[in-house]
């Protein structure tokens, strides 16, 4: 699935994305404050946390779009940022990031060509996947919000990348389409694709194989949904998050006594 085999990746078979002590500051703000993570190939990871918790910055560090102030990121064994590794990464930004005056097929064709896939087959395949085959000639201007989101996903998938970073892919997407998106993700993961999905809605969390809770630039908890609930003694993930963040059920700080160590030691 990975195309070019990288010796370092071969040596650590199974780990698709690895970050050690990654930090990023914007002036006085520690957007990402020492994050370590390992994402195994073929699994779906949910990156959950409130707005401003550092999810987008972390994803941009993982894709190499941002330079870390400290620490290292490796994707498929290649140290980031690396342009060579970018062809094996699919990145779906939170913003629309489409050319409104271009048609669906032109948007796809453009990014496909940049990735070195110019064949019509590649475009048809993803258009079918996101069910936009009948709109290939329509300018993006004429598409609904949901269709635009689907096109954005199609662009992310057009070069069949083995690693996907999806930043809030289901924002503004209706429930039926959301179910479709998740079934695509599940199918891709079954084929060996590693997926990191950032979200601030907890109800998507259960669809992930594993969760990373983020707050204040730090990963405050990692594990399966069941593990995180059990570890915090919470009934649902929302409570689990609040406990790990040291907050009570109303979102107020608990102080030292209530904070729970989220990471398995």
């Amino acid at each position: 699935m990975t195309g070019t085999a990288n010796p370092a990746f071969e040596a650590r078979r199974g780990v698709a994305v690895e970050a050690t002590g990654v930090r990023k500051t914007f002036g006085p703000i520690h957007a990402v404050d020492g994050v370590d993570l390992e994402l195994a190939a073929g699994r779906i990871y949910g990156l959950l946390g409130p707005n401003g918790s550092g999810k987008t910055t972390l994803i941009r560090l993982l894709t190499g779009l941002a330079q870390p102030a400290g620490g290292e990121v490796h994707v498929l064994g290649t140290k980031m940022p690396s342009r060579e590794a970018l062809s094996r990464i699919g990145y779906m930004p939170q913003s629309e990031a489409l050319y409104p005056e271009l048609s669906v097929a032109e948007n796809l064709g453009f990014f496909a060509r940049l990735e070195g896939r110019s064949g019509r087959a590649a475009i048809d395949r993803v258009l079918e996947l996101v069910e936009l085959g009948d709109r290939r000639g329509s300018p993006v201007l004429e598409l609904s919000g949901g269709m635009r989101r689907r096109l954005s996903l199609a662009i992310t998938l057009v070069h069949e990348p083995p690693v996907l970073f999806l930043d809030e892919p289901t924002v503004g997407v209706d429930p039926a389409l959301r179910v479709q998106f998740w079934s695509h993700f599940r199918r891709l993961a079954a084929g060996g694709t590693t997926i990191l999905v950032a979200s601030h809605v907890m109800d998507e969390a259960d669809r992930c194989d594993e969760l990373l809770f983020m707050r204040g630039g730090k990963v405050i908890g990692q594990g399966t949904g069941r593990e995180l609930r059990a570890r915090t003694g919470s009934e649902n993930l929302e409570d689990a998050f609040l406990r790990l963040a040291g907050l009570d059920s109303e979102g107020r700080p608990l102080g030292d006594r209530g904070a729970v160590e989220g990471r398995p030691s």
Binding site: L65, L86, I89
Partner: peptide, 14 residues
């Protein structure tokens, strides 16, 4: 501002 530059930079284009 539309985000396409960010998407461009996430491809191998220089």
């Amino acid at each position: 501002i539309g985000g396409t530059l960010e998407r461009l930079l996430a491809t191998p284009v220089t």
